[in-house]
Simulated assay, not measured.
Amino acid sequence: MSNAPPLVEATALSKVFHTGGLFRRGRPVQAVRSVDAAVARGEALGVVGESGSGKSTLGRLMLGLMPASAGTVRFDGQPLGRPSGRDWRALRRRMQIVFQDPYGSLDPRRRVGAQIADGLAIHHVGDAGDRADRVAAMLHRVGLDPSHAQRYPHEFSGGQRQRIGLARALASGPDFLVADEPVSALDVSIQAQIVQLLGDLRRDLGLALLFISHDLPVVRHLCDRVVVMYLGRVMEEGPAEAVFAAPSHPYTRALISATPQLRQDRRTGRILLAGDPPSPSNPPSGCVFRTRCAHARPACAEAVPELRPFGEGRRVACLRAEEIA
Rank of each mutant, 00 (worst) to 15 (best):
V35K: 06
D101V: 15
W88N: 10
V183Y: 01
V16F: 00
L201H: 03
L262K: 04
H154K: 07
I122S: 06
E322W: 02
I97K: 01
R74T: 15
H124R: 14
L186D: 05
S53V: 07
A321R: 06
E312K: 03
R86N: 15
R308F: 03
S189Y: 04
R290C: 05
Y251E: 03
A31Q: 07
G113M: 00
A117T: 15
G143F: 13
R290S: 11
S2R: 13
R315A: 14
A12S: 14
L273S: 11
P182Q: 02
A40H: 11
V183W: 03
D145K: 11
A114I: 11
P79R: 05
P305G: 04
S53N: 02
Q160M: 13
V142I: 13
S2D: 15
S84H: 13
E312N: 05
A296C: 02
F244R: 10
A246N: 15
L144A: 05
S84Y: 10
G158C: 04
H148A: 12
D101R: 10
H295Q: 09
V228Y: 03
D175I: 08
R111C: 05
I164K: 09
D180W: 03
A132C: 12
G313A: 00
V16S: 00
A136H: 14
G126H: 11
V8W: 04
V218P: 07
